[in-house]
């Protein structure tokens, strides 16, 4: 029982957007898909839900193919980000119609939840998408994702347009739905800090490759920030995986990723501090800028 993709390659105009991605999404978990803009997050979610064809590789749900397989597709909902600029056809569509079509296509659509969410978000469904702001569009994608009741549900940047109060509201609603249903959610976001505690698993996508797929807690615990005098820090972290080095005068700070069993040398005069998911992510994926 899992949504599995193997050796996924996606090429656009000769450029690899995804490079040999293999992933296994287990039921009943909240995954965070984090990566910088252009890392391939939306493309990966599109391929997992058969909305885009992969150049190479396969996606299967419980062993059955997802591509052109209605039985599998019915268990997946990828609520896309709505881009209602003047050019897109969807700008002229009313929110009401979009939700009606969604409720036709998702077998287990939760009508009551839809009504509740519309009330919570205070949405006017008679409005056309072209007249809605980014926050309202995010709310619509959230409603489709939660009400679809699909066992595997993907949300692409669901909180991008929301203010801080609505973001908190969203995470609470997500947890409520997750606790009561045990569905699998994959949430892509680059606003990491707020999401960190919600995500049981974290998948870090960097330049089309999966860098990390781990338990969020385990991953965060494996990263520490070590700082002090340059020589002391160098000695303390010798032989460890060091990222994101910053030096000011005689002082140095590094982020270290510890493998099981490894430890920072405690005999040295250095400060060892825990690191947040966001800091760990920046240490891993932001190195080009640091250099």
């Amino acid at each position: 029982m899992s949504l599995h993709c193997e050796n996924i390659v996606k090429t656009y105009g000769g450029k690899d957007v995804l490079y040999d991605v293999t992933l296994d999404l287990k039921p009943g978990k909240i995954y965070g898909l984090i990566g910088r803009n252009g890392a391939g997050k939306t493309t990966l979610l599109s391929i997992l839900s058969a909305q885009n064809p992969a150049t190479k590789g396969t996606v299967t749900l419980d062993g059955e193919p997802v591509w052109e397989h209605r039985k599998s597709l019915a268990k997946i909902c990828f609520s896309r980000e709505l881009n209602a600029n003047a050019e897109s056809g969807i700008a002229a569509m009313k929110a009401k119609e979009y939700l009606r079509i969604a409720s036709t296509y998702y077998e287990d659509w939760d009508k009551d939840l839809e009504g509740r969410l519309v009330k919570i978000f205070d949405l006017n469904l008679k409005k056309k998408f072209g007249k809605m702001n980014k926050g309202m569009l995010s709310m619509i994608t959230i409603i489709v994702a939660l009400c679809s009741k699909a066992p595997y549900t993907f949300l692409d940047e669901p909180v991008a347009g929301l203010d801080v109060v609505a973001r908190e509201q969203f995470y609470k609603l997500l947890l409520e739905e997750y606790s009561s249903s045990g569905r699998t959610f994959v949430v892509s976001t680059h606003i990491i800090e707020e999401a960190a505690d919600v995500l049981e698993k974290v998948i870090i996508l960097h330049e089309g490759k999966i860098l990390i797929e781990a338990d969020t807690q385990t991953f965060v615990d494996s990263a520490v920030h070590v700082s002090g005098k340059i020589e002391e820090v160098d000695a303390a972290v010798a032989g460890l995986e060091v990222h994101h080095t910053e030096t000011v005068g005689r002082s140095k700070g590094v982020t270290v990723f510890l493998k099981p069993g490894q430890k920072v040398d405690e005999g040295r005069d250095v400060s060892v501090q825990p690191v947040s998911l966001q800091r760990a992510f920046v240490a891993l994926c932001g190195e080009e800028e640091a250099k």
Binding site: R70, G89, I90, I101, A102, Y105, A150
Partner: peptide
Amino acid sequence: SGSQTLYVPLLLSMGETRRN
């Protein structure tokens, strides 16, 4: 022709097969 540009991708995004 206008609605085709709108509904075809929309239905695909809701998990319909291309054949259907």
